[in-house]
């Protein structure tokens, strides 16, 4: 009797551990730029502590979808989003949502490294300062060090924290931008082709970083490099002409995808 209930309890626990938790959920998301429709009723669930790669040909809507996840589209004139996007149960397009706070929870790294024309230290400390995340100078020093360490940049810059961020190499600048995103302790990090301006070694470093960041953050990455999607992600979503064509385990996606369009695209065939 006792043994039975213990086994039952274990089963419940196991089930709970195997249960997938979703950090962000998009339901019937459509995006219009003026009269032009860019996304058609996309439903995508982003798993927690998972790297999700968005792939697809140019103009397929993958970047558009990524930008809906922290309302970056708000800044584009004439852009309209319909449907629902939920972060931990809260609709992020609800009028009560503070967009600045949302973007602290859902950070972003762009294609081109874009450090502020300020010191390395200030690049990282800016976010925590405006969000009031560090009270004292010592607190701030700690935040800057941890963030740079998480971005794998600390050892390279610890002796020149007060030199300009723009003096770093492209790969270092991109890791500085990641440190800047990480500094405000976001829950989700969005990356829009973060390696397209970097050489293979800098790319490998960023990919290694993505792998490590996954333990603490949920990551969504848009990439044009199929190999990169295959290397860094656990889930892959394929977009085509504004539609979500297929979302699957990355292992499955690159060995035996379900959709013919995915198959043609990843194999480099005419679809």
């Amino acid at each position: 009797m006792n043994i039975m209930s213990e086994t039952a309890a274990e089963k419940v626990l196991e089930k709970k551990m195997n249960e997938i938790s979703y950090k962000m959920i998009g339901e019937a998301v459509s995006v219009y730029y003026g009269d032009k429709r860019a996304l058609y009723d996309v439903g995508l669930k982003v798993r927690e502590n998972t790297v999700t790669a968005l792939i697809g040909p140019s103009g397929c809507g993958k970047s558009t979808f990524l930008r809906t996840l922290n309302r970056m589209n708000d800044t584009i004139e004439g852009c309209r989003v319909t449907g629902r996007i939920v972060l931990d149960g809260d609709d992020i397009y609800d009028p009560s949502i503070d967009v600045v706070e949302l973007r602290a929870r859902v950070g972003m790294v762009f294609q081109k490294p874009n450090p502020f024309p300020k010191s390395i230290y200030e690049n990282v400390s800016y976010g925590p300062r405006i969000h009031g995340l560090a009270r004292t100078k010592a607190d701030m020093d700690a935040v800057v060090e941890t963030s740079l360490q998480r971005a794998g940049l600390w050892n390279e810059v610890k002796d020149r924290l007060h030199e300009s961020g723009t003096g770093l190499s492209g790969g270092q600048q991109q890791r500085l931008c990641i440190a800047r995103a990480v500094a405000v302790s976001p829950e989700v990090i969005l990356m829009d082709e973060p390696c397209s301006a970097l050489d293979p070694i800098a790319t490998a470093k960023i990919e290694e970083l993505i792998h490590e960041l996954r333990a603490n953050f949920t990551i969504v990455i848009v990439t044009h490099s199929m190999q990169q999607a295959a290397r860094v992600s656990q889930r892959t979503a394929m977009f085509h002409l504004g539609n979500l064509v297929e979302e699957n385990d990355t292992d499955k996606m690159f060995t035996n995808p379900d959709d013919q369009r995915t198959q043609d695209y990843i194999m480099g065939r005419f679809g």
Binding site: M226, Q227, A230, F254, T255, N256, P257, Q263, I266, M267
Partner: peptide, 9 residues
């Protein structure tokens, strides 16, 4: 070529 999917198989 870094083949994937059917090409790799």
């Amino acid at each position: 070529r870094q083949p994937v999917a059917a090409d790799l198989r």
